[in-house]
Structure formats: structure tokens, C-alpha cells
């Protein structure tokens, strides 16, 4: 999976946003302001990847202990579910 062609991740003034492109600008009329975790996940999704790949990168990024992993897993699943619901990832 990856970020859909009609969305784009951009850094603006030190913040990460997902902006619509092309027909999506006409249809969606909005932007997504990401927190640091959302930005990290979206950077992973700029290239074709898998849930497991993203998780392993997040474990490293956040120096996850075993106890942290279920929380990170749930955060990622929430993000991916929301992202899929608006067509952000394909």
C-alpha cells in the first residue's frame, strides 16, 4: 500500500500536511494536518509498503519495548483505517 496518487505529503513551516491533488482538490476541499506519528507513517507510505514494514520501522523509531508494541500496533491500525476511509492510501 502507498499514498494515493491524488494526495501528496508536504512539509510546510516545520509541520507535515497531506494535501489533495488534481480532481481531489475539487472533490475534497481540505488538508490533513499530521502529528509527528502520522507524519512518520505517511513518510513510510510514500513508497509501496506493508503494515508489517511500517510497524518494524515504528518500533525502531520509538525504541519500543515489548509492552509498547500493542499500543503502537493499535495506533497504526487506527491511522490506516482512517486513511483508507478517505482514500488516502491504496
Amino acid at each position: 500500500m502507498k499514498i494515493a496518487e491524488n494526495y501528496m505529503l508536504r512539509e510546510i513551516a516545520g509541520n507535515y500536511v497531506v494535501i489533495p491533488v488534481g480532481q481531489n482538490v475539487v472533490d475534497y476541499k481540505g488538508m490533513l494536518h499530521l502529528n509527528s506519528t502520522g507524519a512518520f507513517i505517511c513518510k513510510c507510505l510514500e513508497n509501496d509498503t506493508t503494515r508489517e514494514d511500517i510497524l518494524s520501522k515504528m518500533y525502531v523509531e520509538y525504541e519500543a519495548e515489548e509492552a509498547d508494541k500493542p499500543i503502537i500496533d493499535a495506533d497504526l491500525d487506527d491511522f490506516l483505517e482512517n486513511a483508507k476511509s478517505i482514500g488516502l492510501i491504496v
Binding site: 501528496m8 508536504r10 494535501i19 489533495p20 491533488v21 488534481g22 482538490v25
Partner: peptide, 9 residues
């Protein structure tokens, strides 16, 4: 215009 990624950027 924001028709493409290049233009949006």
C-alpha cells in the same frame, strides 16, 4: 492551479 503534484508543490 493544483492539477498535478508539481503544480500543488
Amino acid at each position: 492551479p493544483t492539477w498535478t503534484k508539481e503544480l500543488s508543490s
